[in-house]
Design a protein around this nucleic acid. Structure first.
Length: 525
RNA sequence: GUCUCCAUCGUCUAGGGGUCUAGGACACCGGGUUUUCAUCCCGGCAACAGGGGUUCGAAUCCCCUUGGAGAUGCCA
């Protein structure tokens, strides 16, 4: 059977960086395997899932080149299926009702008592003895166990777990007497809803069962059933929750591999049970490590740089983001970093994904971006710069030829398109100056005198060309006993106000005689 | 608290018992590219979290400790 993976975001208006990373890995895997990459829009939250939010999502995917196969599935359209699945589970005896009052009863999926008969990957782990606190009676019913665990300090901490976690349960009291044997009552508990409340219980003895599966990136994963709880699948108001919706849609879309963030591992254990109880073959799971921000913390909305749109607005190229993100938590195994889409597809494998979380380094991403910017077609580069300059006060009306020349000078020096704002000195007198840099460069009297002399030489130039400008600068340097080249940064400070830019001779030529001289004058005073 | 997972330079990573005095990249610091900015090139700084095992031999396997993350919702 061919591979089918899906990207299943909730459209919330912004596309989270962690989500899109998962999308990229799914896409890479699908393309590598020659399978299908499906899109499922989990739009059941009607508050946030606006048409605008969905449009943003689709636009971001297109921007990144994440083309999907088949038609996008809108989860809200599947509601009846989700409910039908819940009813099916009820008819098979896997569901009970629970809730504060008769009017709002939720449907709760009971982790099946006969787990090993229904679901692959259930194993007995041997005998367990669990100390519990006698302060609270142990309550046993078809809804599971309620008891008080004992904290390190000896205090009672209320806990609960699913019934299926306690195969062969025997409860002992403080005198060491066996006061309850689950095997003797399991029928009446499950069938008749009988409940037990046991006082003075201090120990639970049972056979631990665990559920396990082989994760394609993390390897063998396992969780004891006694650490799991039954889960609500339909709310008291009749709406299905995430779990059945997700599983049912994965069955509908015949998804073979689920590649998602680490934060879903616990859900996967539960979902495995749901797949099994619905009679479906479970998919293969792969959990990706999370990506974290520069502070090493998980990305949250308020950190900034949490959304794809922010990277685009800063002037990162789509392929930079694609390439960089694909290298977070994965590597091709050799020294390649700058990789084309084709190379990434070719090299990708889940087995080479890492197990630990990765921190985004915006500086390194900038370096990668610079590489991609440097190899852009000049025309395309100019157009892109034009777009970013458009929003700036000085960027509305520009001489196109002049702008193109500036672009040509600056292409190899640009890391992000937002940085075009630093080109302001080419277009007017109202530019930002790096005072610290300028102060340092323009403090020496001899240097200032040389700049003054340079003005006259430049003014006398018949042709204001880079070559002539260079010659004049050399003359001025020689006259004032300044090593050739040492005058360049002071000139740059006077004329551009910042320490980095294009070649200074070319910059002056482009700026023109009048402006160049005027700026030297201003600073030389 | 409990459960699950994770741990190599500041960061992203290579590394599947010997070829590791641990390689690459970004950042940083020097130097070079007929004396500037950038590119490019060369060089430098810098890591196996700690402790026990297993083994002739451990960054690699096991255990413990510590640290981190996630989960413990009628959120998704």
């Amino acid at each position: 059977m061919s591979v089918r993976v899906r990207f299943a975001p909730s459209p919330t208006g912004q596309v989270h960086i962690g989500n899109i990373r998962a999308a990229i890995f799914n896409w890479l895997f699908a393309r590598h395997e020659g399978g299908s990459f499906l899109l499922r829009i989990e739009d059941t939250d009607q508050q946030r899932s606006t048409p605008e939010a969905i449009a943003t999502l689709l636009e971001v995917m297109q921007w990144l080149g994440l083309d999907f196969d088949e038609e996008a599935l809108y989860q809200s359209s599947q509601r009846q299926k989700h409910l039908q699945a819940a009813e099916k589970l009820r008819s098979l005896g896997h569901v009970y009702s629970d809730g504060p009052d008769a009017a709002s009863q939720a449907m709760v999926f009971r982790i099946p008592w006969q787990a090993e008969e229904l679901c692959e990957g259930i194993q007995e782990q041997g005998a367990m003895r669990m100390k519990i606190h006698p302060e609270q009676p142990v309550q046993i019913s078809h809804k599971g166990l309620r008891f008080a665990a004992v904290s390190k300090k000896g205090a009672a901490v209320p806990d609960s777990a699913c019934l299926a976690g306690f195969k062969n349960l025997q409860v002992y009291d403080s005198e060491g007497r066996q006061i309850f044997v689950l095997q003797e009552h399991i029928e009446e508990i499950l069938r008749d809803g009988r409940q037990f409340s046991l006082e003075n219980a201090v120990e639970l003895r049972f056979t631990r069962r665990s559920i396990s599966y082989v994760d394609q990136v993390k390897g063998e994963m396992s969780k004891p059933l006694d650490s799991m709880r039954d889960l609500v699948i339909v709310r008291g108001d009749g709406s299905p929750v995430f779990h059945p919706a997700n599983v049912v849609d994965d069955i509908s879309q015949a998804v073979t591999h689920i590649i998602r963030g680490d934060d879903h591992v616990e859900n996967s254990f539960r979902h495995l049970l749901l797949f099994a109880c619905l009679g479906a073959k479970p998919p293969v799971y792969a959990h990706l490590p999370m990506i974290v921000n520069a502070a090493g913390k998980p990305y949250s909305k308020r950190d900034g740089d949490a959304f794809v749109g922010e990277f685009r607005d800063k002037g990162f190229l789509p392929h930079t983001l694609f390439n960089y993100l694909s290298l977070l938590g994965w590597s091709p195994g050799d020294d390649r970093e700058k990789m084309s889409r084709e190379e990434l597809v070719q090299a990708f494998s889940l087995q080479r994904c890492l197990h630990s979380s990765a921190q985004v380094d915006i500086v390194k991403m900038g370096a990668l971006n610079a590489l991609y910017i440097a190899e852009m077609e000049p025309g395309e580069f100019v157009a892109q710069c034009r777009e970013f300059v458009q929003h700036l006060p000085w960027g509305k009306e520009l001489d196109e030829d002049y702008f193109a020349k500036v672009c040509a000078f600056m292409q190899s020096r640009l890391k992000r398109f937002v940085d075009v704002e630093q080109w302001q000195y080419f277009f007017g007198e109202d530019y930002q100056r790096d005072e610290k840099f300028c102060g340092k460069q323009l403090s020496d009297d001899n240097t200032l005198a040389a700049l003054k002399a340079l003005q006259e030489k430049l003014a006398a130039l018949p042709e204001f060309s880079a070559a002539n400008i260079e010659a004049s600068i050399h003359e001025a340097s020689d006259e004032f006993n300044i090593r050739r080249g040492r005058l360049n940064q002071p000139i740059r400070a006077a004329v551009t106000g910042i320490g980095t830019g294009a070649g200074i001779y070319e910059t002056l030529e482009l700026l023109g005689k009048e402006k160049s001289i005027a700026r030297l004058n201003l600073s030389a005073k």
